[in-house]
Design a protein around this nucleic acid. Sequence first.
DNA 1: CGTGTCC
DNA 2: TCCTCTGTCTCAAGACACG
DNA 3: TGAGACCGAGGAT
Length: 308
Amino acid sequence: MPRKEIIYRDRDRYRMGVKKLRSLIEEQAPKAIKNTEFKALEGRIIAVDTSNNLYQFLTAIGTENGSSLMNSIGETTSHLQGTFYRTIKFMSNGIKPVFVFDGAPPTLKSGELAKRSAKKKEAKENLDEAKETGTTEDVAKFSKRTTSATRKQNEECIKLLTLMGIPVVRAPCEAEAQCAELVKGGKAWASGSEDMDSLAFGTKILLRNLTASDQKKNPLWEFDHEKLLYGTGFTHDQFIDLCILLGCDYCESIRGIGPVRAFELMQKHKSIEEVVKHLDPTKYPVPVPFPFDEAREPIQEPTCHPCR
DNA sequence: CGTGTCC
DNA sequence: TCCTCTGTCTCAAGACACG
DNA sequence: TGAGACCGAGGAT
């Protein structure tokens, strides 16, 4: 029991803010969100963030028995199947996709990397155990957690898209940042991503659940950056500060400050500097170190190919 | 719409 | 007492055609 | 990996 506590303590401390952001926007700037549909996107150029897509294909397509679809010599083809049909779906709806592939991940803290490899290891152990003693469902479930797209599979998808005449962009770093840059540079109308960080990167429009097959279960949402700022009264830089307070990759957040307090504090004080000045350090001590200023830079000016 | 199939 | 935040668990993750 | 549900601990009122 105590062993488990140690293992789980402080895990997922970073990158928690994104999920809070969705409900925060819904509450504070409801006009920035609207339910839309595929048909409404006809003629639009959309920068599609492909990170996670291959993972979804690999884990969702043909996995009744825990393995993927394969060609005659045993190579996995699920990622190609998924990429192909999704692209067809865009095209037949008159949508012009630009697929943006992830480059190297941004520099993470060593602690973060250690956590990830620990997770991977844990998943592997679970899988091995399931193979020994578990049901086939267990094996399928745990094998999904150990699955990840290989370099080769990424390249295969890029080749497929190129042959289909679909533009592909290789982001030097994070795909969402590159998508936002394409939109800001006028090359695309919207970002298609599941990641709310896209708004912090300044995309004008963010589309979520672009992959939805079932409109009822997974409605397609459109987030409008300008309306978001108008509704909340924030400048873009203030919005970025809010995102940092909610939790980001580059800097720890303040314990006890969640969505509600972070929003109120930013409304009142307009910057993290001022927020910190007005916090009672005995009740809400800031993390040491608390490099929030350094955390702004990779959000305001992320590494990506410039479009302007 | 649920269900099975895609390799 | 109420509100807010944290921690933990759990689950599901595509697209199509056919009936 | 992300999102919803549920819980207990504290500060807020």
